[in-house]
Write a protein that binds this DNA or RNA. Structure first.
Lengths: 229, 229
DNA sequence: TTGAGCTTGTGATCGCGCTCACAAAAGGCC
DNA sequence: GGCCTTTTGTGAGCGCGATCACAAGCTCAA
């Protein structure tokens, strides 16, 4: 089967190119774009852009560049965004509510169709125009709404159980916002978005540069104290 | 200068180990943990755990494992989490508010000290116990509060300008939630959290498995129609 | 039609990160 | 004390991803 394999790293960049191309398409009359310009807009280098596109096929014209509309269509198709995806959010706390009312999803074809929680004080309420259902109804609702993507926005302690229930209900794609590791079967794709981890990574690099600056300062003072420079 | 270089990939996993170790430390009396068990908790394999820790130093005991408390301290120190980090959030929309009231930050030593926006209808209001300041006050507030980490939670169109202002104010670490690429000077670390991109990546893999299933189905039907199997 | 000027597409190379496999070391048991 | 079990620490090998550099191919002008 000739499903030419697209490297993971490339897949992760396609949405970035997609956004840059959408900006270009509505921004100006220019109907073609060079790898150089697209690279600048996407924050990568031109060689990477060309190599990435070469995995999709030969969609450019030498000496000219890439046709914006055509490339847009190809990336959209490759990412599976020609169809809408039905999404469920589990956990209607602060974060769950913010996600449920985020406009950006529907613009990109992700339809939030169902919200779940276990807290009796929110089950039955309306949030962002949707009835909050009890987690026990998950399988039923997922099946009848054909939901294919599940978002976990629960406290960390419940994340694994929710993931298990989503998988049991047939969901094959999970986006996990809970600060916890969730293990899923190999035929399920789970990705993690963890804000605290991102901050801790920033902390590492910030601390390192501060430590280097402090060492240099200490060095300078030592050097100044030494006679004869 | 013997700042032994810790690979980026390892740095990104340290927070995951940290969380697993915190769970272990409060969960049970066992004061030691093997790379095998920690690997399971962190969702990676044991060899990677050991190699990662080897960059920090030789903190384990052969035949026994790693001392949980000691390892916790070493990772905390390495990540620069022995101190608190003052954080500012720019953009007090849905997401900005959810982030401002997220408890997980303070638990991990990230103190949200200031909120900024340009919308006159929120500037001056209190959100999560903090006065929302005007973006024009950014430099002043950042300087006097010693803020070192900036979070961008604005619409995409403003992201680059906000990033520029943060950098101008002296911020060296930026976490960008806006669906836009921001370019910063090489001495500034900028990381991106983009929910739509994550969903689009999920879409790619989901679509691919669906396409494969469809192809197999079509194949099956063709095969059934062919005489003699 | 030919040549100049761009820009793509891609083989080649390099480096990083992951995995493997095993020697080294520690503890416990007889 | 010596042997057996367990688990770490790490050298070696490998594969993926990034970058480089250039031939191929397109447009335009004369």
């Amino acid at each position: 089967m000739p499903t030419r394999a697209i490297p993971e790293a490339t897949v992760a960049r396609l949405p970035v190119y997609l956004r840059a191309l959408l900006d270009l398409a509505e921004g100006r009359g220019e109907s073609t774009v060079s790898s150089e310009e697209l690279a600048r807009l996407a924050g990568v280098n031109a060689a990477k852009v060309r190599k990435d596109f070469s995995y999709l096929g030969s969609y450019g014209t030498r000496g000219v560049g890439y046709d914006v509309e055509y490339l847009l269509y190809q990336i959209t198709r490759e990412l599976g965004l020609t169809q809408d995806w039905p999404v469920a959010i589990v956990g209607v706390g602060n974060l769950g509510r913010a996600l449920a009312s985020y406009k950006g999803f529907s613009e990109r074809g992700f339809r939030i169709l169902a919200l779940f929680d276990v807290d009796e004080s929110v089950v039955g309420r309306k949030v962002a125009g949707l009835d909050v259902r009890h987690l026990d109804d998950l399988k039923e609702v997922v099946t009848e709404s054909g939901i294919s993507i599940g978002i976990i926005a629960t406290p960390p302690g419940s994340a694994q159980e929710v993931a298990d229930r989503l998988v049991d209900a047939g969901v094959k794609s999970i986006l996990n916002f809970a600060p916890a590791v969730v293990n899923v079967a190999p035929d399920v794709t789970a990705r993690r978005v963890d804000v605290s981890i991102e901050l801790q990574i920033l902390s590492f690099y910030q601390q390192r540069t501060q430590a280097i600056a402090a060492a240099r300062e200490a060095n300078r003072r030592l050097g100044a104290g030494r006679p004869g420079r």
